[in-house]
């Protein structure tokens, strides 16, 4: 049997603060396990509020931080053993990331095409200018842009939606099998948001790329995900098929999260406030 694309096994991440006397620990990720099958591309969503450990988990999957305990296997290989430059490049050509704010991800003084060219030079066998340009144009076309459109342009000359699509195109240059997208649409305008979301769907269906979609927005999660997990304070409180979980959440936290989603119909418009006074952190 071929190994899974990704196995996350009992992963913990603990951040310690303070010294010997006033030591406190922050259990950012607490015993999380899930796996993605290699033969079935899917959109796997991690839902959580700020502080739930979802970005820490993403960092560990991208091998930019090591878990305190537990293992993460990519195609059966422990990320702990991916150390040498060659291994890391090999790993990065299979696993790519897209971040929240495209205006932060790109240096405003650098032309955006340079990112794409350097990705092509680093991760692919393309060495001549023609080959590199062809490869870059190819991945830009997958996101509905073309090299002619973006060549020589700076980030401020483009809209957030365009720039985020360039970021996705950059991630696609090495033909990855997994993309980790950390809140990819929360900074994008409403009229462009669905374009980017639909693009993830297309990547899954047409290119067979698995996507780990990290978000706090339940509505878009419902729209694109196949499976999801809901995280609270580092723990997975509920997981499973996206439609089933979001249609009828079981865990009290998931129910609370589901109820807090504002519906367009304006269900709670005239509801009285029943919330208790929040306590002051000491």
């Amino acid at each position: 049997m071929s190994p899974n694309l990704l196995d996350v096994e009992n992963v913990n991440k603990i951040f310690a603060r303070g010294g010997i006397i006033s030591r406190s620990v922050n259990h950012a990720v607490n015993n999380v396990s899930f796996s993605l099958a290699a033969d079935k591309p899917e959109v796997f969503t991690i839902i959580g509020e700020s502080g739930s450990g979802k970005t820490t988990l993403a960092g560990m999957i991208l091998n930019s931080a090591a878990p305190t305990s537990g293992r993460i296997l990519f195609r059966g290989k422990d990320l702990h053993d991916v150390r040498s430059r060659r291994d890391r490049l090999e790993f990065m050509s299979h696993v790519q990331a897209v971040f929240q704010n495209p205006f932060d991800a790109f240096n405003p003084l650098k032309r955006v095409d340079r990112y794409l060219f350097s990705a092509a030079q680093t991760f692919t066998e393309c060495r001549t200018t023609d080959k590199v340009e062809e490869r870059v144009d190819d991945s830009l076309r997958k996101v509905g842009l073309s090299l002619a459109e973006i060549q020589g342009r700076y980030p401020h000359e483009m809209s957030g939606g365009q720039l985020q699509r360039v970021a996705i195109a950059r991630a696609l240059v090495p033909n990855p099998s997994l993309i980790v997208a950390d809140e990819p649409v929360s900074m994008i305008d409403a009229s462009l948001r669905m374009t980017v979301i639909n693009l993830f769907k297309k990547l899954r269906d047409e290119l067979g790329v698995s996507i780990i979609y990290i978000t706090h927005d339940l509505a878009t999660a419902y729209y694109i995900s196949d499976r999801l997990i809901i995280m609270q304070e580092g723990r997975v409180v509920e997981g499973g098929d996206a439609r089933t979980v979001l249609a009828a959440p079981q865990h009290p936290y998931s129910i609370k999260l589901r109820e807090a989603v504002l519906s367009v119909e304006g269900a709670w418009r005239d509801e009285p406030i029943t919330e208790a006074m929040p306590a002051v952190a000491s």
């Binding site: 409403a190 948001r193 979301i197 509505a219 519906s263």
Partner: peptide, 9 residues
Amino acid sequence: LISSLPRIG
């Protein structure tokens, strides 16, 4: 804007 809003269900 209204029709493109994703909704649960």
